[in-house]
Simulated scan of single mutants.
Amino acid sequence: MKRTGMHMPKKGFSFYGPAEGVHALDSWITPEDELFLVTHMGFLEIDREHWHLDVDGLVDKPMRLRLADLQAMPQREFMSFHECAGSPLAPTVAKRRIGNVVWKGVPLSLVLEHAKISKQASFIWTSGLEWGEYAGVEEPYKKDLPIGKAFAEEVLLALEINGQPLTSDRGGPVRLVVPGWYGTNSVKWVGSITAADQRASGAYTTRFYNDSTASGITPVWSVAPEAVIVSPSPNDLLPADMPTKIWGWAWGDHRISNVEVSVDGGDSWQTATVGPRKDKSWQRFELPWSPESGQHVLLCRCTNELGEGQPPSDARNAVHSVEVEVGPLAAGA
């Protein structure tokens, strides 16, 4: 149901990202204007004075929280990569929509504790307030979290990103943030939270964002290990035999323990150095390189602490490659 104080200035699917793609991501914290934006049904603007959050379902104490109520609750900051799962209509196509930001807000667990969640509840449903049509479906954007994940310390009802209040474009005034899980689970313009004893039945949990695996259908939840090369980019002309470095970012729900780089199209691999992780941030990797003249295909792949790696192709976390030119023209430019 549409609420008072809301309107959608732009309807339909929308995507924004830097023109240079991952090669624009040269800072540890991604500035908001360089962080991708994706919407299914359009952009929603909400009058902050009219916004409220309903908490209901299998709870002993149903609640309606206003923005001021959340602002008065204990807040925490959490750094995390933020990645889009890509199109649910083409789940094996790597989109590499990624950034690393600092969220601030109220831990979802605090709200659930105040509402006194029933022991019968096994999932927490979260619904956005936007409306419209996506891929032939017209229904509220509703996602769910297993109860254990919902109570994890990093899951927030976020009010800020990178030290600034969430704008409407970012899902403000309040959005759910689920660090370590794909962005589809971080519901924007959140309006209701429902405790339930089963998964949500909407299209965004049953039809979209599910992967076929050897063990059956798996929800698109935890982010698989992935790495990208930021530098050099295809636009760089590198001088031959001059020391440089190949560097980029690696990330996943679990800490990345190893990154390998190939400078010959995958015929051989070298181990890169991998930096530390803060909270669930991405991790920087580097490899020194003195390239020979000619065309080179650079690739990177990573492995997480559980030993999980990346497939070479046909997956949202497929191995990333970059073609670069090395030669005398670059040296004399």
Rank of each mutant, 00 (worst) to 15 (best):
S201K: 10
K104F: 10
P140A: 03
A195N: 08
R66P: 02
A224R: 14
E286V: 14
L67H: 05
G136N: 04
V111W: 13
E49S: 06
M79L: 13
V55P: 04
S201G: 11
L156Q: 11
A150E: 10
K143M: 07
V22M: 05
W221G: 11
V137L: 06
K119F: 10
T167W: 14
T244C: 06
W282C: 14
K143Y: 06
K245N: 12
L299W: 05
G191F: 05
I256V: 15
G172K: 13
S257H: 14
D69P: 02
L89D: 09
V55M: 07
V187K: 13
R3W: 03
E34P: 00
T4V: 11
D169T: 08
S122T: 15
I161V: 14
S321C: 15
A250N: 09
G327E: 05
D69F: 00
G163L: 12
P18Q: 09
A94P: 04
P88Y: 09
F43C: 00
P243Y: 07
E138G: 06
G180H: 03
D60R: 12
S186Y: 10
L157N: 07
L298H: 04
T244G: 06
E153F: 00
S290E: 06
Q164L: 15
K188Q: 13
T205L: 05
Q71H: 09
V230S: 11
K2L: 07
D54I: 02
V155Q: 08
G128V: 09
G148P: 00
D144N: 14
S186Q: 12
L306Q: 09
N100W: 11
E45D: 00
L44E: 01
A72E: 04
R207Q: 08
S27Y: 03
A19D: 10
P234V: 12
G132L: 12
L237T: 12
L176Y: 01
F208V: 03
